[in-house]
Computed example of a mutant assay.
Amino acid sequence: MINWNGVYPAITSKFTDNDELDIDVFSKNIYAQLEAGVDGIILGGSLGEASSLRDEEKILLLKETLLLVEGKVPVIMNIAEQTTQDAIDQAEKAQRHGAEGLMLLPPMRYKATDAETVKYFKDVAASTDLPIMIYNNPVDYKIMVTLDMFEALASSQNIVAVKDSTRDTTNVTRMINRFGDRYKILCGVDTLAAESLFLGADGWVAGLVCAFPRETVAIYRLVKAGRGQEAINIYRWFLPLLELDINPQLVQNIKLAEVYTGLGTENVRAPRLPLAGDERNRVIKIIEESLENRPQLPDYLNLESAAV
């Protein structure tokens, strides 16, 4: 059962020098996420280099993750396909192999109309028993899931959450004003997470959590416990790192940060290449300066949420 509250890492896929999945390094990162107190794991997102993963690799990552988490947190599979039938097929495979939820993007490559997008979501939802989080990211994927579209989707009972990457924090309030608690709202943009949580978002689908899991979870737990100033202090320290997530090279950026925190390698899958030159030096400077000033965290794992 997924409650869609908390921090959900969009986990990076790990590769060996020979371009195979690196399960050992992947496992180390998952254990760090669990120890930090994350509330779920999302596989096969854009940060997970989903478009470069073969179907059998996605299933392997799912199976390995289920073994690693041992039921402690739900495992969610991302679905990003070009056709409705392909999305239905991927949803069926994910459910059959043990995924507990889906994150669903609009059709890839084709810029569907509002009506086509709604039907796509509804058809996929009707094909599975799994709960679904709609990924609303018009900046990168060119399709905006509007409030009216969410109204049309409300009849699909297993469409229960939205990852809001609209870059518009007022969308959190608009969703709550229109739908109350019908949809769980999770921020999908690292640099707007604290703002979204203060406005009432239920969770955070995070990127830099892959390298800094404890700081990410601490911010979430402090906000929800009503200890806002402590959360803000950590967030201000974190912001230069979080800005690495809103960049075309977010995968390379975050994997480089994982190297510095001992939670990954720089290996990416072609056509991506590791960072080089001035840009690499710029990112390293941000990471090193942040590590030099890394904050002391309170005992955030034992916080209780403040009464609403």
Rank of each mutant, 00 (worst) to 15 (best):
Q252S: 15
S305H: 14
P274M: 01
K122N: 05
D299Q: 13
R227C: 01
P298C: 10
C210F: 04
V145Q: 11
D19C: 00
K58Q: 14
R280S: 13
L68P: 06
A206M: 11
E195Y: 09
F150P: 09
G6I: 08
D202L: 01
G180H: 02
G228I: 04
E70K: 14
I159S: 07
V139A: 14
I23G: 11
A270P: 10
V209T: 15
G188S: 07
P295H: 13
V259Y: 07
T83N: 05
R214T: 09
A193K: 01
H97V: 01
N5L: 07
A32N: 03
A211K: 09
V259L: 05
S156Q: 11
Y135A: 05
E215K: 10
R294T: 14
P131L: 06
I134E: 04
G71V: 06
T16H: 13
L104F: 03
R294Q: 15
F150Y: 15
A91G: 00
Y141N: 05
S27Y: 03
F121R: 02
D17S: 15
A218R: 11
D19S: 13
A91M: 03
G40P: 04
A225Q: 12
M144V: 03
Y300K: 09
V124Q: 08
D86G: 12
V268M: 04
V139R: 14
V73Y: 14
V69S: 10
L61N: 05
Y300A: 04
M1R: 15
